[in-house]
Design a protein around this nucleic acid. Structure first.
Lengths: 348, 348
DNA sequence: CATCGTATAGAAAGCGCTTGCTACTGTAGT
DNA sequence: ACTACAGTAGCAAGCGCTTTCTATACGATG
């Protein structure tokens, strides 16, 4: 029923081996033969059987991209950049690789499941994006899985994620600590002394690093932090909204709110506005990531720009072996402070 | 080197056939045997070889999701919902399916390439999202490909995309015409008579349908449209920004601007503000889709809410055969007008 | 006690492709 | 003219799994 290599071979009057070689182009085939084969392929409308080919060759042209939340532009932008580098030419079988993004939803189990599924498919490469979960057993399980993938010849790259110990995985990490430090330094420079902080989920590395940067800035300025000033939440606007109301309840005298990311900051802005507070006259707000919509917020959002596209593109190239990995396999990517309208000198 | 089924079989003292049956669970195996096999699997840390299994069984557990732009939350949200329905239990091999999203970047060629790649992998199902390109040869090529996929047993579902002729593909389309009509009716009801329209890329069905709805509303109200009132662009904020400046140049007397989607509307808002115009006092602005950030815009955006998650979930379920397709294989999903702060009665 | 049905396990034939090796040309080197 | 050797093409052995068909063992049945 379905057309196979053998059918093509018969039609082109050559052996299956020859057809395979024409298709994979890694063995000398006379021009006339090649043309005859290609014509047969065309006439029969032949499509290579991926699984069969992967089985025989012991490799596949699948590349996996793991993201925490595909509905979040933060990941969407990175995934897009990674995929753009991978989809291109340079591979087997006509240079096409199937770059697929897998949505873990931030769940450690799903992350592991997807890794297994990719291992099962004998993926050519895997790129993991986003912060990791700080949970020893899970981290160990992931590390073990990555090691196994690497052993099986799968290239592993981490993008915007801390290095995994005992793994040959290349890591491109964002300097979340440094960015957060710069951001809070900016606020302190404006004169703020009472700053609320809306953190992400407590168990994620990204959350911890950003919070650490924030606290380092406070400490450096000799500001003693009130435990009430930190609220943990999720990385979405809803969380920012709720957390802001909570912060306001705990300490109405706050003059600035630093959010875990831009979406959270937007939610915070909404909550402040509903509470009758002006931004930045009454309360300054800062975000993180500099997603596209941040500049359109009113007032536009002061934030830390992360080179999502650039980092993703680089990760993609490394995954394809088209760019040298950084020395030591680890590179830190810095963010850039973007001072805009949502931060100003505190009232009084 | 790598552990195979045979290794597991040897360790468990059973035949490979038995191991396979334990793993696939579709054949009676004595409890004691099953347990012995599972222990061996565990001890050897065995991972099924996907390609081999797909080859032998002539099916795979891969499900493809095609999106136009993964960095756009519109697609991210849909993809997330689809994937959530697919990743779950219910399939072969432990109920795990690899739901992968493929980013076409809106390019017809890439769309076709991905479809071929998925066909090559013998995907279990394919979900295509987003508007199609209105280009006869390409539409025919896609339809042909979809037909072939269906013939090979791949379930094909279109989500937020017009039905494909001569294809058994199930289609869940958004009622873009109706939504746009309601939106412009609302504006006209407020008293607007001079409305600018920022359309998406001219060749997409979504663009055309929304524009048609808009024009139908104008016609029904007896408003004669000035050709200068329509500008085509892309579906991003930048485009909205540029197009707005262009519209303002062409006709400074416009009192309302209807955008192709929310991102475009946000760009329009920014441009208006930069031009010293107030929203909605001087100019009203309306979007489409009701993405999460739209409610946080200042003023919050009047728009048409599309049930992205619901439609995606349904498409996912249909793709998995867990829900009956709609009668006739086609269903139209309606949007809901969300009247918010960005629209008001025109000045004067 | 012979017969049968049922539950469970194994043997073995592929699934469609890749690739190491062998075989056959024709041309170049001596 | 004879060997040597590129340049091509074919043979055939798998890759690791699924599945049909067959075999065995048992308890139930007449």
């Amino acid at each position: 029923m379905t057309v196979t290599l053998a059918d093509v071979a018969a039609r082109a009057q050559v052996s299956p081996a020859t057809v395979s070689r024409v298709l994979n182009g890694n063995y000398p085939v006379a021009a006339s033969t090649r043309e005859r084969v290609l014509r047969a392929v065309d006439e029969l409308d032949y499509v290579l059987n991926g699984p069969a080919s992967a089985l025989a060759a012991a490799t596949s042209d699948l590349v996996g991209i793991l993201v925490n939340d595909i509905a979040d532009p933060f990941f969407g932008i990175m995934a897009s950049a990674i995929q753009a580098e991978i989809g291109g030419p340079g591979g087997r079988a006509g240079g096409e690789r199937l770059a697929v993004v897998c949505n873990t939803g931030g769940s450690p189990e799903r992350e592991l499941t997807y890794l297994t599924l990719l291992q099962r498919q004998r993926a050519a490469a895997v790129v993991l994006t986003g912060g990791a979960v700080e949970n020893a057993p899970h981290a160990a399980a992931v590390a073990a899985k990555l090691r196994k993938l690497a052993d099986a010849g799968t290239r592993v790259v981490l993008c915007g994620r801390p290095p995994a110990a005992d793994t040959q995985a290349i890591a491109l990490t964002f300097d979340n600590r440094g960015g957060a430090r710069a951001l809070t330094d900016h606020l302190i420079g404006l004169g703020h002394r009472r700053l609320g902080y809306i953190a992400g989920p407590e168990e994620r590395t990204t959350t911890r690093h950003r919070l650490e940067g924030h606290r380092a800035a406070l400490r450096a300025a000799g500001i003693e932090e009130d435990p009430r000033w930190t609220v943990y939440g999720r990385y979405d606007r809803r969380s920012g909204h709720e957390a802001t109301l909570e912060l306001l309840r705990r300490d109405p005298s706050l003059t600035a709110i630093v959010a875990a990311n831009d979406s959270v900051a937007l939610g915070a802005c909404a909550a402040l506005r509903e509470s009758g507070l002006r931004i930045p006259e009454d309360v300054s707000v800062a975000g993180f990531d500099d997603l596209p919509f941040s500049i359109d917020a009113v007032p536009s959002l002061t934030t830390v720009r992360l080179p999502l596209s650039e980092a993703g593109a680089r990760a993609g190239r490394i995954a394809m072996g088209r760019e040298e990995p950084p020395l030591g396999g680890i590179a830190s990517v810095r963010g850039e402070l973007m001072v805009r309208g949502s931060t100003g000198v505190p009232r009084g």
